[in-house]
Design a protein around this nucleic acid. Structure first.
Ligand SMILES: NC(=O)c1ccc[n+]([C@@H]2O[C@H](COP(=O)([O-])OP(=O)(O)OC[C@H]3O[C@@H](n4cnc5c(N)ncnc54)[C@H](O)[C@@H]3O)[C@@H](O)[C@H]2O)c1
Ligand SMILES: NC(=O)c1ccc[n+]([C@@H]2O[C@H](COP(=O)([O-])OP(=O)(O)OC[C@H]3O[C@@H](n4cnc5c(N)ncnc54)[C@H](O)[C@@H]3O)[C@@H](O)[C@H]2O)c1
Lengths: 213, 213
DNA sequence: CGTTAAAAGTGAAAAAAATCACAAAAAAGT
DNA sequence: ACTTTTTTGTGATTTTTTTCACTTTTAACG
């Protein structure tokens, strides 16, 4: 399999095409066209074709793309053919919402354990265990985990990040509203809800002021 | 106050500068320079200055920016001088995590009510009440709410979105992993956790394959 | 079959975003 | 007071991303 250098945005778009395609497939579609995919994800058909072109995905002129085949290729590129195991640091409000969320399993993502410093949060009984933070390193190493989610308070985030990295974690999804001091060869994506909300508020206000148009 | 057309990304950067600045201010900084701001948010000093330039923010040559003054201007631009009231649809795992989150208040954002169709979720006692979904429209109208958060299952999201829009909501933060059929003059930002996680996974795998470099 | 029409594929063009690089200002030093 | 040094502010340039527009292929139809 060839690894292709691509921007974060183009990969996000591939994921969106894949998700749209899954829905189309459930609806019985056998063929899909660049324009309906564009529609489904909010882009243009030219961009869909360009994206595919970049990854060497070929369709049939006048015949569009075979849904199964296209989905297969996208899953391949996105690495959806092997299940991914993920751990979470922080079994608080967000952390537990994620732990209990059913949506990841269908995406081939399994949250296998959570870790917390608060002894009151430790719980081995349930479906997904919550262990003491001390055990994170050993767990990650013995289970060869490569992806972690940070759902601890902002003051603790950098420290937890470093523990994760030193344990062998290679990719992190960070919910704490701070910028992690990044390390080469560790991928970090941030989910910053405050920022997104603030952004919505800005544009609502801006539109209102310009609204006279 | 002048409304300036700017890209989503440049506004996101302004928010990040503002957040960094808040921290610097707490640490006692009186002056800040473009390069330390760049550092704090992970950009370049030229970009910081360009962003400020676009919004007519002036510093002092060789003297940097006065922290208080800069913060004031950013808050102004971002509309942080008036508190924003926000409602949530869906009092489930994510919805309640947001309701209970303390971090919004310091950001001038107040979550004032949640709404759910499940009678078991209705609860007026607490700090932030959970009302039946039917009451959303009236609540939004009488309280003149302009911002809503969607935290309902994906199948319900479009319908809830339409209720919000018809009630007068002008901006939406959507946690459901679907694309809302958007309406002109309503701002929609999406928080798609699956997508972000999938993206991390992609790049971890891609780096690994290229890693031999 | 042959013709028509639809859709992919893709260089070229345009637009948008980021970076450069340097003049101008002014704080700090001497 | 004068010089040096630092940092801003911003046109110009470069890079990246998106869109355009046209060629090619082929499914569909008569
Ligand atoms: N709750 C939300 O809706 C929300 C929204 C936006 C951002 N966030 C961010 O997500 C993060 C978590 O928020 P939350 O609301 O779930 O907080 P929370 O307080 O409910 O949970 C945090 C958990 O982390 C644990 N913890 C603290 N230090 C730790 C450490 N060093 N190692 C392991 N665990 C540790 C705590 O014991 C607690 O269980 C915060 O950074 C917050 O800013 C949360
Ligand atoms: N929990 C997570 O960590 C997580 C992660 C990623 C995405 N999401 C997305 O966030 C959304 C909410 O997820 P969740 O885990 O909180 O689900 P949940 O099932 O815990 O909560 C959903 C809530 O919405 C309510 N609801 C259903 N239909 C409604 C309607 N028409 N009007 C008002 N309320 C309605 C339900 O009664 C329930 O209380 C989903 O779209 C999910 O895909 C959640």
């Amino acid at each position: 399999m060839r690894a292709i250098i691509a921007s974060r945005n183009s990969i996000l778009r591939l994921s969106k095409y894949k998700n749209a395609l899954n829905r189309f497939q459930k609806l019985g579609y056998v063929r899909v066209f660049s324009d309906i995919l564009a529609d489904a994800v909010g882009g243009t058909s030219a961009q869909v074709r360009k994206d595919f072109s970049l990854f060497g995905i070929k369709g049939n002129k006048r015949g569009g793309y075979n849904a199964d085949e296209l989905l297969g290729k996208l899953n391949d590129i996105l690495g959806k053919n092997t299940r991914q195991s993920v751990i979470i640091a922080g079994a608080g409000k967000i952390g537990m919402a994620l732990v209990k969320y059913k949506g990841f399993e269908n995406e081939g993502i399994s949250i296998v354990a959570a870790f917390d410093i608060d002894p009151a949060k430790i719980r081995q009984g349930g479906d997904i265990p919550v262990f003491p933070l001390d055990e994170l390193k050993a767990f990650v190493k013995t289970n060869d985990i490569r992806i972690g989610i940070i759902a601890v308070p902002d003051i603790a985030a950098q420290q937890v990040f470093e523990i994760m990295v030193s344990s062998g974690i290679k990719g992190v999804l960070n919910f704490a509203p701070i910028r992690l001091k990044e390390t080469a060869d560790v991928v970090v994506n941030n989910v910053n809800v405050e920022l997104e909300l603030e952004n919505v508020i800005y544009f609502v206000n801006a539109l209102e002021r310009t609204g006279s148009k």
